[in-house]
Design a protein around this nucleic acid. Structure first.
Lengths: 250, 250
DNA sequence: TCGTCACGTGACGATTCGTCATTATAAACT
DNA sequence: AGTTTATAATGACGAATCGTCACGTGACGA
């Protein structure tokens, strides 16, 4: 009754495989120069099959973005294992985010462009839902830490403020620095701005603005960042060094 | 010796005209659906002529973006006329930025997408230089106010920090909120985040983080925002109301 | 009036996207 | 084993769009 069927699992597996191939292509070219035809040429599947998975090129982009966000999530989880104050762990999240960005600059572009309206407009509903879940999960991880901080008294939630606003403030400040600095090609530099430094600056300002203890003038967070990086992300630091783009400490 | 010449001035004028036509098209469609062919159909010039002005579609996008930034600059200048503290005037800049964004949501998308690597890659050098100048001018306006604050003692520049970093921190936090909230289509909402509220929150956090006086717990900035909006941007507020997207005060 | 040369034009080749008619194939059945 | 059958895979194709370039046009000087 059902000849030549493909199981859901096989289908999902193949989707992952295609996404990985696409990510591989991006590494050498750029998200912009990636075309469906190139992907078809590089993958052991035909165009029709690929369009079974992604309803459009943008849908593929968003799928790549979602995969990246899942990867980032894993790093976040590792970061949250840092033994320190709640604020230390937020710093650790920033470290992990930066490390990922530096490890995969081409992929980061994919994540950035995935936030453009064209991608949102041309992606499948399921993919968009998945994307929202990914974003939600990342924010949730930050949210848990914020809750902890409130419970321990390190952070006092301003009375007229929603809980999610704290997450959003932190996330958006990090996003802004990332987007502005990384979008500039090598051709034009945005002053002498350094991704790592400005990101930590934004983090510090936002958290100090909340009065999240210990404040940055009570503690040397540069030291904390070094400790986090070496304790949790030493392998990644080594890779970055080998890539010629070492993590820059203050 | 030179038959049928076009002066530089005429050329520049025509460029402005074409950009305005393109902006008009964007209003009804979207930056993504804007094609050169549509522009050619809408403009009294042929494709060849248009390609005399813009070396690529992306170059046109960046030109639109630059025009928008010049418009924003004018609003910034108006904002800076606000009679108050230096921090009040930064708040005024945020108000003007938000008002522009709400007045021209479609154009804002153009500005956002103009920051994607594809646009940077395919634009002419001149256009990129112009873009950098626009960005620089906007930041410079903020920079002037920061200097004033330092001179009056409202702000103490952290010893290990460059002057430009203050500007960048403020600008990137504003950018992040804008990019994250506006990039979400109507389909998917990012929690109950409100552009105006989160923008002012970010602004307050960053400036409080710097210890920029008067701090937000010493003064009701919601009141200041209302004052700024009504004193300087009442016509725009009325327009927004008519558009059905009123400026949202806290 | 005519020649010239910069400017304007839009047809065209080249890409790339996404579809769909056709082919291949594995399971079920005889 | 051979046949049937429904589903999956394929890639040729039409449509859309980009950017170019060979040709047309017209203002000005001679």
């Amino acid at each position: 009754m059902s000849p030549r069927t493909i199981t859901d699992k096989e289908f999902a597996q193949r989707e992952i495989e295609i996404i990985e191939i696409a990510r591989g292509l991006i590494e050498f070219e750029c998200i912009t120069t990636l075309t469906i035809d190139k992907l078809v040429a590089a993958a052991p599947y035909s165009k029709g099959t690929i369009y079974k998975h992604f309803i459009s090129k943008e849908d593929l982009f968003l799928a790549i973005c979602n995969t990246c966000m899942s990867e980032i999530k894993e790093l976040f989880i590792r970061a949250l294992a840092f033994n320190g104050s709640s604020r230390d762990r937020l710093e650790a999240i920033m470290v992990s985010y930066l490390i990922w960005a530096k490890l995969h600059p081409a992929q980061l572009f994919a994540v950035l462009t995935a936030h453009s309206p064209s991608v949102t407009a041309c992606s499948s509903d399921n993919r968009l839902i998945e994307h929202n879940q990914c974003e939600h999960q990342l924010m949730e991880l930050i949210g848990v830490e914020i809750n902890l901080a409130i419970n321990t008294g390190d952070l006092t939630l301003p009375p007229d403020m929603l809980f999610e606003q704290v997450t959003f403030a932190y996330w958006s400040a990090a996003w802004g620095a990332m987007a502005l600095i990384m979008s500039k090609g090598e051709s034009i530099k945005l002053e002498p701005m350094v991704l790592e430094r400005e990101s930590f600056t934004n983090s510090r300002l936002i958290l100090d603005g909340f009065g999240w203890k210990p404040l940055s003038n009570e503690k040397d967070y540069n030291q904390t960042v070094r400790k986090i990086a070496h304790e949790i992300f030493q392998p990644e630091l080594d890779t970055l060094l080998k890539m010629g783009t070492p993590f820059i400490f203050n």
